[in-house]
Design a protein around this nucleic acid. Structure first.
Length: 136
DNA sequence: GCCAACGTTGGC
DNA sequence: GCCAACGTTGGC
């Protein structure tokens, strides 16, 4: 099982909206690095949902519902989409500030590659963040 | 609203 | 194939 992090601007698509929808299709990604990560996702993988621009915090955990398939908004160009479903809202959101302050998380892609919208999370980082969120 | 970081584009 | 110009993302 692998761990990931996806970003969304709440004004565009928020965690609350995601929960209301029950699932969502992550399409429209037009970045090669992000696409490669989408393609590597397996059903059941766990995914942090991060609010960028506003909030600046990890708000919940999603799960891969459907592995990558041709992006319906641009099917012939090799871009892909992945379906997610919301799994759990964190007891306490984990802010970018907290992540920055933690030495052991200084290597996270969130900090090093701040512009990448789909990125891998190491198991160690995953557990660390869950702990900060007040989860087991 | 500004600006740094980074990806993409296009001229040579 | 290099690199400058430009556009976009995202934190501040």
């Amino acid at each position: 099982m692998a761990y990931w992090l996806i970003k969304s601007e709440p004004s565009n698509y928020s965690w609350q909206q995601f929960q209301k929808d029950g699932k969502t299709s992550w399409d429209g990604v037009r970045n090669y690095a992000a696409r490669n990560h989408l393609q590597a996702m397996k059903k059941g993988d766990q995914v942090f949902f991060y609010h960028s621009n506003e909030g600046l915090e990890i708000v919940g955990i999603a799960e891969v519902l459907k592995e990558s398939y041709p992006d319906p908004t641009l099917p012939d160009k090799g871009w892909v989409a992945v379906d997610f479903k919301p799994k759990k809202t964190l007891k306490r959101p984990v802010t970018l500030k907290e992540i920055k302050e933690d030495e052991s998380l200084s290597d996270m892609a969130l900090l090093r590659l701040s512009r990448l919208s789909v990125q891998p999370v190491k198991e160690k980082e995953w557990k660390m963040i869950l702990k900060k969120a007040g989860e087991k």
